[in-house]
């Protein structure tokens, strides 16, 4: 009933939402490469511009996108401080033993922070705009060449999608069981560590039982429908490239080329 929104998918209709998941995955890979190829601020500016464009066309609220950074905020700040303190340079503002604050150090750490932020925002934009199901579809399709070396691509994708499908079901179930035990006076909030761990038992056991029961039921249902894996299966949702994907592809290609050119012709800015 109160369906916990799984992951971060943000359900609106937009240009980015309608892109082929395969393109989005490839775009993310290209983006990560571009970020690490860029060695100067101009290159990063190109990457940032492309990302701002993508966010604007995804219709996901900017605040929501920025919230993704919160999870890695500590890491970002930590590396920034380390970089400032340990990166030596020519223009030194302050020095104490091996610690020093220099112009180059500050620039380098700003550069690093931008890199990390772009990386995190871009990958979370993918999960904001792509449902888990179409993401696994995309991964399956991209991994198809591995079938030649007898890698069970379809089975792997199936395992992924079943696992993803079960997350909201089990989280619902957890809520239900917690409520049932709360109604019987269970208390999950107060008490010391031992008490809290003990309080989990009345949730964990019914939850495990229910997971096994559901797995059994699903297995039986698949068996009853003669599910045989990947052989001769057709797809309900066929992935097709459209004009949007062409635009996305061109944008990605332009970005990578631009970053590479900027690296070649503008070396040593940072």
């Amino acid at each position: 009933m109160k369906d916990v929104a799984f992951g971060q998918y943000y359900p609106v209709e937009s240009f980015v939402h309608k892109l082929d998941p395969r393109l989005k995955l490839l775009f993310l890979i290209a983006y990560i490469v571009a970020i690490f190829v860029a060695t100067n601020f101009y290159g990063l500016a190109v990457c940032a511009f492309v990302l701002i464009l993508a966010v604007a066309f995804s219709r996901v609220p900017v605040l929501k996108v920025l919230r993704a950074i919160r999870g890695v905020l500590f890491l970002v700040l930590f590396t920034a401080v380390l970089n400032v303190l340990f990166h030596t340079g020519e223009t030194v503002y302050w020095q104490y033993g091996i610690l020093c604050i220099s112009k180059e150090g500050i620039l380098f750490s700003v550069f690093f922070v931008i890199r990390l932020v772009l990386l995190v925002v871009c990958s979370s934009l993918l999960t904001y705009t792509t449902t888990p199901v179409s993401l696994t579809d995309g991964i399956e399709s991209l991994l198809t060449p591995l079938k030649w070396i007898r890698f069970p691509v379809h089975e792997l994708a199936l395992i992924m999608s079943i696992a993803l499908r079960f997350i909201p079901i089990l989280s619902d179930e957890t809520g239900r069981i917690m409520n049932a035990q709360k109604a019987r006076g269970a208390d999950f909030e107060t008490g010391g560590l031992i008490k809290k761990i003990r309080a989990v038992v009345p949730i964990l056991i019914p939850l495990l039982l229910s997971a096994f029961r559901r797995a059994d039921e699903l297995g039986e249902a698949m068996d009853a429908r003669c599910y045989m894996g990947s052989k001769n299966r057709t797809k309900y949702k066929k992935l097709t490239f459209g004009w949007r994907d062409a635009i996305g592809f061109l944008l990605g290609a332009a970005m990578v080329t631009g970053v590479v050119l900027l690296r070649v012709y503008l070396t040593g800015v940072v």
Binding site: R176, I177, N179, A180, Q181, K182, A183, R184, P202, P206
Partner: peptide, 27 residues
């Protein structure tokens, strides 16, 4: 909650203890 007892749908799925006696005594 002591005064208002609540039996959820399929309440048998909330059983967890080793014995029936323990489970009933939980509340």
């Amino acid at each position: 909650r002591k005064k208002v007892g609540m039996v959820f749908q399929y309440p048998e799925y909330q059983l967890f203890a080793e014995t029936v006696k323990e489970d009933v005594a939980f509340g």
